[in-house]
Design a protein around this nucleic acid. Structure first.
Lengths: 326, 326
DNA sequence: CAGGATTGGGAGAGCGCTCTCACGCCAATC
DNA sequence: GATTGGCGTGAGAGCGCTCTCCCAATCCTG
């Protein structure tokens, strides 16, 4: 149960600690026979490098943070698992840890100091409040950050997003191709980039659409659909800016005697699990969340490798998943 | 941008590094005036302790791991966010990091070595495969572990679970109180403790129930309900061992002309987000996931504090959430 | 074959922190 | 007034690792 140190490995292999270290780190130019001796010593002693010691000298934590909004705001967020899995895919093979931080009082400041004291090499920020000063502080300090989703106000920060506008346009074209001519949309919150872009992209395609506002939550989808039916009973096609809202809205249609998609075609956005638990299953705009998360991880690693490299943004193309609702 | 070290704080405060360290760690007996001087020096220099250096000597990583099944098996797991948030609540105030690891090739071995090399102080294992040797190895090595859910085969390991049997009995009593007399159940996988217990608990209450097997996934709920209706068309009450299965099963009932709950009452299990996205909303057995997760974290911390302390298990009581489906 | 260039390996200096230990100081005791 | 005890403080020894020297050995080149 005693710890094996590099010192001991070196002793067993009959080399110096420096050489043993070179072998461990796969470094250059070690004689083949010595390399073998060290490797044998490593496996015979069961040596594992002490990360803290390494970290102390390399000034790398080999850990990145994932800052998430808290449970309440996630509202059964369909994405969390996909995000984690995408990031993990990139980061694990490099032995880098993924530290999860759910937003709560003082979390972001916590993350900031973790970054400063070298406990974290970088962070990925998800669903950041536009008023949050932390992203700004981070980039000001030249610390590696990547945002999930375009920030509302332009800032020199790296982010990864899906082309929300194009996605909404996809939905608009779909509804038009279904020969719907009384088309409406239930929007996301207009103080987020995603909410704004999905509306703008849809209106570009269907300029005369009726607009009812929601905030991405299921509850707001229910309320919005009720309002919509009241003000516009002859609606025959709706683009709902999140699957979660659509999931709440469809039962409202049923209760009001509308068949989906016969009477009202519905197209959602996200292709989250809510798309499959809806009846009928949702036609929706898919974002490649897991791939986007992987890209965020890559962007972050690049920044860690090359500090103060210029901010870039990567845009993914959405696709339409046709199911039964529209 | 240069790092501030304890050395420097000490210099500024005019004390020795040892004394500065005592102040930082809130330790015993430092003269009030010196304490003040050090605190002033800390804030004026913006000092943050280097965790790696501390970790190197304390042999504590101040990080715990959360081992999760991979994305596919989570199947839009309703729990992930709650688990994370429960653990976070306990762990954050102590400055302990939560490292997320999704199961993939070699993940568990990875976790094991992270533990051994002191990169992680302990791990919480969620949804462990009964055949998985890792939990056994961990306890054999005397490393701190907590399981989410009772292990299938009894082993001397600390775990936190909900009283599954009692929960299923709750569901059984509910269906009986609704005067149903042709009662069935769709089970979870019988190679998991949860699957077994929910069936046993239900049968204890409704011994003559018709049993159809599922595996907790939505898809299996659909298939199981189809089978059930074929073999037992006069069924008027069903306990479905997971909300996700129930979510899939209810549309099957509708398609076959059954009203829920008028013709067939449905009770689920989990009180996950799937309970709310069902139509009608599910009556279900609630597990206090977030509280359970918090308790797991506490148990783990206790083990870290007192290694080789005896394994304990904590059981939470489930409750029935009555909604519209039964 | 001499001289320089190249290469592999070892010694050792830290990285920033904690913690033991010993010392100095002052109050309490005889 | 000398001795004891306690308490606060500082000196310094590591924790386990990486990495920069520097030296020895080998290689090439004219």
């Amino acid at each position: 149960m005693k710890r094996v140190t590099l010192e001991e490995v070196a002793r067993v292999a009959g080399v110096s600690r420096a050489t043993a270290s070179r072998v461990v780190n796969g470094a250059s130019s070690v004689d083949e026979s010595l390399r073998h001796a060290v490797q044998k010593a490593i496996s015979s002693t069961g040596y594992l490098p002490n990360i803290a010691a390494r970290s102390l000298v390399t000034r790398r934590a080999d850990a990145i943070g994932l800052l998430l909004p808290d449970e309440r705001r996630m509202d059964g967020d369909p994405h969390l698992a996909s995000v984690v899995s995408g990031v993990t895919r990139v980061v694990r093979p490099l032995g880098i840890h993924l530290v999860l931080m759910m937003t709560g009082p003082g979390t972001r400041e916590q993350a900031l100091s973790d970054l400063r004291c070298g406990r974290l090499d970088g962070v990925i920020l998800v669903h950041t409040d536009p008023a949050d000063p932390v992203p700004g502080q981070l980039i000001a300090a030249g610390l590696p950050v990547v945002l999930a989703g375009r920030p509302l106000r332009p800032m020199p920060i790296t982010y990864v997003d899906v082309n929300q506008t194009a996605g909404a346009a996809l939905a608009g074209r779909r509804l038009k191709s279904l020969q719907r001519n009384r088309i409406a949309t239930i929007t996301g919150p207009q103080d987020t980039a995603a909410g704004q872009d999905r509306l703008a992209g849809f209106l570009a395609e269907v300029p005369d659409a009726v607009v009812v506002h929601g905030d991405f939550t299921r509850q707001s989808g229910i309320a919005a659909m009720e309002r919509l039916l009241r003000c516009c009973p002859d609606v025959d096609g709706v683009f709902i800016a999140s699957d979660l809202m659509a999931n709440g809205a469809i039962p409202v249609l049923h209760r009001n005697g509308r068949k989906v998609p016969a009477d009202v075609a519905v197209v959602g956005f996200d292709d989250s699990s809510a798309a499959l638990t809806s009846e009928p299953e949702l036609t929706t705009v898919r974002q490649p969340i897991s791939d986007m998360a992987a890209e965020m991880a890559r962007q972050l690693l690049r920044q860690i490798e090359q500090p103060r490299s210029p901010a870039t943004s990567v845009m993914f193309e959405p696709s339409l998943v046709v199911r039964d609702s529209g």
